[in-house]
Lab assay of single mutants.
Amino acid sequence: MSGNGNAAATAEENSPKMRVIRVGTRKSQLARIQTDSVVATLKASYPGLQFEIIAMSTTGDKILDTALSKIGEKSLFTKELEHALEKNEVDLVVHSLKDLPTVLPPGFTIGAICKRENPHDAVVFHPKFVGKTLETLPEKSVVGTSSLRRAAQLQRKFPHLEFRSIRGNLNTRLRKLDEQQEFSAIILATAGLQRMGWHNRVGQILHPEECMYAVGQGALGVEVRAKDQDILDLVGVLHDPETLLRCIAERAFLRHLEGGCSVPVAVHTAMKDGQLYLTGGVWSLDGSDSIQETMQATIHVPAQHEDGPEDDPQLVGITARNIPRGPQLAAQNLGISLANLLLSKGAKNILDVARQLNDAH
């Protein structure tokens, strides 16, 4: 009898209710805020589980004197976190989706994509230029951005401005803007500013005609071990179906173009009346040469937790077992079709030249 009692006690200790789920994140304040929001949602869904947040620095956090596009290494903000995932030191990792490459290392998958916040870019102005827009900034004003995508589009749109690289986390960039006289304004992701509670610093939100956004911008991705079915089931509740389908289309477009950090590629997606609209573009580094096109596809946005595919093969690095396969494939095909259209119009040449120029500098 006593033996059975011990077995029952052991089973209770090993039951999922007692389990601590370890969540990996970057150390920056924004990353911690984003991770806290994901953990809060998981806690609400699984009140019996405990969650421990483990923060670590990544290569991208450490190399702050070089433009991201020049470092010449993929997975700048993800490699150390993936290493911890691989060694079973954490069970899942919360990322900004735009930091996750469209091809993940073997053994990993994006197990959830959370509801997207505003994906557009924002302009934050130096205190002396508050009330201005990019259009009304004085001639030769210097605007800071760490992104080739932003610089290429904005140089084309605002030729009277000069664009220079600015690195560091959000706090560091804002301090550089406010305390030094080098920059009249800087460009940042609206979602990051909003998550930090800095709505009052948003001086201008850039519309798609001015600057399309990065693939996955404004959404959070939760990376897990691809074979860890328990954790895949656990994080599945975080999937937002519309965000998922938009981001599958965007990531398929980028992957098929073979774009990345070192080339200016941008997108804009919208879901309306059962249609998914995808606009994508590529630019030369100075913005003088560009190709942009829009395509659409009829896609039914499923309700969360309709029964999805059981075999769960990944699409552009994403596993969404609780979302039907048909809409996911339709979104992926839309991204591939748009990429093929741009490639047929000469996108590869623009991107190759951009890559060579970026590598040469």
Score class of each variant (00 low, 15 high):
Arg19Cys: 04
Val20Asp: 05
Ile21Trp: 10
Ile21Tyr: 09
Val23Leu: 10
Val23Arg: 01
Gly24Ile: 04
Ser28Phe: 00
Gln29Thr: 09
Ala31Glu: 00
Ala31Phe: 00
Arg32Thr: 06
Ile33Arg: 10
Gln34Gly: 07
Gln34His: 05
Thr35Tyr: 00
Thr35Gln: 02
Thr35Pro: 00
Thr35Ile: 00
Asp36Lys: 14
Asp36Ala: 09
Asp36Asn: 10
Val38Phe: 05
Val39Glu: 08
Ala40Val: 12
Thr41Met: 14
Thr41Lys: 09
Thr41Leu: 09
Leu42Glu: 03
Lys43Thr: 12
Ser45His: 08
Tyr46Gly: 06
Pro47Val: 11
Gly48Leu: 13
Gly48Phe: 10
Gly48Cys: 11
Glu52Asn: 04
Glu52Trp: 04
Ala55Ile: 08
Ser57Trp: 09
Thr59Pro: 12
Gly60Val: 11
Gly60His: 02
Asp61Gly: 03
Ile63Leu: 13
Ile63His: 06
Leu64Phe: 09
Asp65Cys: 05
Asp65Trp: 08
Leu68Ile: 14
Lys70Phe: 10
Ile71Gln: 15
Glu73Gly: 06
Lys74Cys: 05
Ser75Ala: 13
Leu76Glu: 06
Leu76Ala: 06
Phe77Ile: 04
Phe77Asp: 03
Phe77Asn: 02
Thr78Ala: 07
His83Lys: 12
His83Ser: 12
Ala84Arg: 05
Leu85Tyr: 01
Glu86Met: 09
Lys87Arg: 12
Lys87Leu: 11
Glu89Phe: 12
Val90Met: 10
Asp91Trp: 02
Val93Phe: 04
Val94Thr: 06
Val94Asn: 03
Leu97Ser: 05
Leu97Gln: 01
Leu97Ala: 11
Thr102Tyr: 14
Pro105Met: 09
Pro105Arg: 10
Gly107Ile: 01
Gly107Met: 14
Phe108Trp: 14
Thr109Ile: 07
Gly111Glu: 03
Ala112Cys: 14
Arg116Val: 03
Glu117Val: 14
Asn118Val: 12
Asn118Gln: 09
Asp121His: 03
Asp121Lys: 02
Ala122Trp: 01
Ala122Ser: 10
Val123Leu: 11
Val124Trp: 05
Phe125Pro: 12
His126Lys: 12
Lys128Cys: 09
Phe129Trp: 01
Glu135Gln: 14
Thr136Leu: 09
Leu137Glu: 03
Leu137Trp: 02
Ser146Tyr: 06
Ser146Thr: 08
Ser147Asn: 00
Leu148Thr: 09
Leu148Tyr: 02
Arg149Gly: 01
Arg150Ser: 05
Ala151Ser: 09
Ala151Asn: 12
Ala152Thr: 13
Leu154Tyr: 07
Gln155Trp: 11
Gln155His: 12
Arg156Gln: 12
Lys157Tyr: 12
Lys157Asn: 13
Lys157Val: 10
Phe158His: 14
Pro159Gly: 09
Leu161Asp: 00
Leu161Tyr: 12
Ser165Pro: 13
Ser165Met: 06
Arg167Ile: 08
Arg167Trp: 07
Arg167Met: 07
Gly168Asp: 01
Gly168Met: 00
Asn169Pro: 02
Asn169Trp: 05
Asn169Ser: 12
Leu170Ala: 08
Asn171Leu: 13
Thr172Gly: 10
Thr172Pro: 04
Lys176Ile: 11
Leu177Ala: 05
Leu177Arg: 03
Leu177Pro: 00
Asp178Gln: 07
Asp178Thr: 07
Glu179Ile: 15
Glu179Leu: 09
Glu179Tyr: 10
Gln180Arg: 13
Gln181Glu: 14
Ile186Glu: 15
Ile187Ala: 08
Leu188Asp: 02
Thr190Phe: 00
Gly192Ser: 10
Arg195Asn: 02
Gly197Cys: 13
Val202Ser: 06
Val202Met: 12
Gly203Arg: 04
Gln204Ala: 05
Ile205Arg: 07
Leu206Arg: 03
Leu206Ala: 03
Glu209Asp: 09
Glu209Tyr: 14
Glu210Pro: 02
Glu210Asn: 13
Glu210Gly: 04
Cys211Ser: 12
Met212Gly: 14
Tyr213Thr: 02
Ala214Asn: 06
Ala214Trp: 01
Gly218Phe: 00
Leu220His: 03
Leu220Gly: 03
Gly221Glu: 00
Val222Ile: 15
Val224Pro: 05
Arg225Ile: 05
Arg225Met: 13
Ala226Tyr: 15
Ala226Asp: 11
Ala226Pro: 07
Ala226Asn: 02
Gln229Thr: 12
Asp230His: 03
Asp230Ala: 05
Ile231Ser: 10
Leu232Cys: 11
Val235Cys: 02
Gly236Phe: 02
Leu238Gly: 01
His239Val: 04
Asp240Glu: 15
Glu242Lys: 11
Glu242Ser: 04
Thr243Val: 01
Leu244Asp: 00
Leu244Lys: 00
Leu244Asn: 05
Ile248Gly: 00
Glu250Ala: 06
Glu250Phe: 01
Arg251Phe: 02
Ala252His: 02
Leu254Tyr: 00
Glu258Leu: 03
Gly259Ala: 11
Cys261Lys: 01
Cys261Phe: 05
Val263Phe: 09
Val263Lys: 15
Ala266Thr: 06
Ala266Val: 15
His268Pro: 04
Thr269Arg: 00
Met271Arg: 08
Lys272Asn: 14
Lys272Tyr: 02
Tyr277Ile: 07
Leu278Gly: 09
Gly280Asp: 04
Val282Arg: 01
Val282Gln: 04
Trp283Asn: 12
Ser284Asp: 04
Ser284Gly: 11
Ser284Leu: 00
Leu285Pro: 14
Asp286Gln: 11
Ser288Leu: 13
Ser288Glu: 14
Ser290Pro: 10
Gln292Arg: 09
Gln292Asn: 11
Gln292Lys: 05
Met295Tyr: 15
Met295Lys: 12
Gln296Thr: 06
Gln296Arg: 13
Thr298Met: 09
Ile299Ser: 07
Val301His: 03
His305Cys: 14
His305Lys: 03
His305Ile: 14
His305Gly: 13
His305Asp: 14
Asp307Gln: 04
Asp307Cys: 10
Glu310Asn: 00
Asp312Glu: 10
Pro313Tyr: 15
Pro313Gly: 11
Gln314His: 15
Leu315Arg: 04
Leu315Met: 09
Val316Phe: 12
Gly317Pro: 11
Ile318Lys: 15
Arg321Cys: 07
Ile323Met: 05
Gly326Pro: 11
Gly326Val: 10
Gln328Ala: 06
Ala330Tyr: 00
Ala330Val: 14
Gln332Trp: 13
Gln332Glu: 08
Leu334Thr: 00
Leu334Ser: 08
Gly335Tyr: 00
Ile336Met: 05
Asn340Leu: 10
Leu341Ser: 05
Leu341Tyr: 07
Leu341Pro: 03
Leu342Thr: 08
Leu343Pro: 05
Ser344Gln: 06
Asn349Met: 11
Asn349Glu: 09
Asn349His: 06
Asn349Arg: 14
Leu351Val: 05
Val353Met: 14
Ala354Asp: 15
Arg355Gly: 15
Gln356Phe: 03
Leu357Ser: 15
Asp359Ser: 03
Ala360Ile: 05
